[in-house]
Amino acid sequence: MATTTTKLHVIYGDTTLGLVGEHFHYIFSYDQGGLESLQQYGKEWLYRTPKPAFWRATTDNDRGNHFSAHAAMWLGADLFSPCTDIEVAVNGQVITLPVAPENNRYSDHETADTVSLTFTYTTTTVPATTVEVVYTVDATGQLTIQENYTGQPGLPELPALGLQLIAPTMAIGFSYQGLSGETYPDRMAGGIPGTYKVDGLPVTPYLVPQENGMHMQTQRVTVTRQTTLNNADPDQQAFSLTVQQADEPFAFSCLPYTAAELENATHQEELPPARRTVLTIYGAVRGVGGIDSWGADVEPEYHISAETGHSFSFKIAGPDELNH
């Protein structure tokens, strides 16, 4: 399957679009509404298609100032917003969506320099708005991912804005270049820039499980796993995936749980057994606040307006760029 050219091998399937190159294989699904498979060196990195992230598990301060109540429709949007439009561009040119029978005009020898897919999600909020996730893949297998949120007057402030990627098995750890410790926009002055290695996927054990594990101002994060769900893959060698800064540093958290799983627990011991890796890359993070826990709001400069647009981008390194 590996191509000997320096171009992407493009497979125009009936329900998916496959992109193949040396040591990588990506599948975008029209049916699942997103990137369904991200394989490098034969290892699958996606459990389900990545989705825009809008929710953060309620912090004690959020509960105290009723932010979660005000912003509650974003929890539904985080869980349920459907993909409502898909667009494909090859070498920068938008093409007719190559589903059957349109794709009958292609062959098994199609190549391209770059392929972009844009998945548009319509939020379940009232009023609704849209979020585009644009994946651009080049011949080296590098993915540039851009997320564009469309502002919509009348929507409550966003708890968060990111893209959530869930890997099928739990990581053995991650390393990152950014700030020490757990940081938020209004709590990052003490973070020391550097390269840090984290073993496992620690959940900060707040008495009530809540939003945790954020890392602001990150240039790079490399997640390492050792196991897959592939029954035909007995290999136990560690393997990694790297997310890199595009234009601006990004924020991320790498946890074994989704925001909804954290939200549902009142004690650490109620969290389900850890079995996946939830890597969320954030373009906007709301501050945690701290004046009090019974009403004081987060300082205004650390809010995320949902009435204005937000865009952010980051890269997933191709297999040749792995340098770990």
Partner: peptide
């Protein structure tokens, strides 16, 4: 008030 994930805005 450092309840849970807090201490922002110091």
């Amino acid at each position: 008030h450092d309840m849970g994930n807090s201490l922002g805005g110091m």
